[in-house]
């Protein structure tokens, strides 16, 4: 009887923990269902046209997501262009070149930067970064690179470019720390082989570390892209919030996440919130795809430090 009771306890505990683990799937289902239901009206009215229409007119009840999709993609692209080289170079410095103490100290600072809430970076962005960009960096760019359409037009400060920079600041710590782990998991033997051939430190890094870790680093970048696409508060505060598709990076833009943040609580009627729900659904779809790709890249990059599963 005693054994029977023991087994009973085991089953109960096992089922309890299983239930909690399965809650992950329940959460996914919940997100999908709620967003799908919420966007029903908008989907019914606009269909696929929603994704390619650039009209955003709450008074006439006409909604199209194109300027927001454009803004999300462009600000994320700017962010990646800035963040990827800096992050990977930093990861290389931390794992291959820096003295141990410096490396540990910098790693701690980078992890702290990752912990800074988005709204605080946004506050700093609005009151410190944007005025500096408006008075110094943007005029300088316009003087020197003004022949490109990207750097033409009036300068307001709040702009697609400012949004891209703030997103870059937010994703740099993520890309750096994941890249650092990837580089650390490159086998020592790879490096020693290159050293034995008389390679310099940088040559070792380039030949045996970076090329070995290519796939994993790509995963780190994609993970950063996933964060960039969904970044909300800081972007909302500096991007200017104006739904337009223009060439100039100095012009204000709008993103999927910031339009939801700004307009959801003021959305009256039933179609308006529904259109915003559909924006959320688009955003969810894109970020889930991007994150799934990143996870697959990172888990299939099996360095020796990657834990075998059970």
């Amino acid at each position: 009887m005693n054994t029977a009771r023991k087994r009973y306890g085991d089953t109960v505990f096992r089922c309890l923990t299983l239930l909690m683990a399965l809650s992950i799937f329940a959460l996914v289902a919940l997100i999908g269902i709620e967003l799908f239901e919420g966007s029903g009206k908008s989907m019914h009215k606009f269909g696929w046209h929603f994704l390619v229409s650039s009209v955003w007119d709450p008074i006439a009840e006409e909604y199209g997501a194109l300027p927001f999709i454009f803004g999300t993609l462009v600000s994320s692209a700017i962010a990646l262009i800035i963040a990827v080289p800096i992050s990977i170079a930093t990861a290389v410095y931390l794992t291959e070149l820096a003295p141990r103490v410096v490396s540990q100290l910098l790693t701690m600072f980078i992890e702290l930067l990752a912990a800074v809430p988005s709204v605080i970076l946004g506050l700093w962005g609005v009151f410190v970064m944007v005025p500096w960009l408006r008075d110094h960096l943007f005029p300088w760019l316009q003087n020197h690179l003004g022949f490109l359409p990207l750097f033409q037009g009036p300068i307001y400060g709040v702009s697609m470019f400012a949004g891209g920079i703030i997103v870059a600041i937010m994703i740099i710590p993520i890309i750096t720390s994941v890249s650092r782990e990837i580089l650390q998991s490159v086998p020592k033997l790879q490096r020693e082989a290159a050293y034995a051939l008389g390679a310099t430190r940088w040559e070792v890094t380039r030949i045996s570390v970076l090329s070995y870790a290519k796939k994993g680093l790509f995963g780190a970048v994609i993970l950063g892209l996933g964060r960039a696409l969904g970044e909300t508060m800081a972007v909302t505060m500096v991007i200017g919030n104006s739904p337009q598709i223009v060439k100039s990076l100095f012009a204000p833009g709008y993103t999927l996440s910031s339009v939801i943040a700004n307009e959801f609580n003021e959305a009256t009627g039933s179609l308006y919130p529904s259109a915003l729900f559909e924006m959320g659904l688009v955003l969810l779809g894109v970020t889930v795809l991007v994150n799934a790709l990143a996870q697959l890249l990172l888990t299939t990059f099996a360095g020796p430090n990657v834990k075998p599963q059970n």
Binding site: L30, I31, L35, S257, F264, L283, L284, T287, V288, N291
Partner: peptide
Amino acid sequence: GVPSITWGIV
């Protein structure tokens, strides 16, 4: 990796 704003509307 789901954007926090999405959690909000859900």
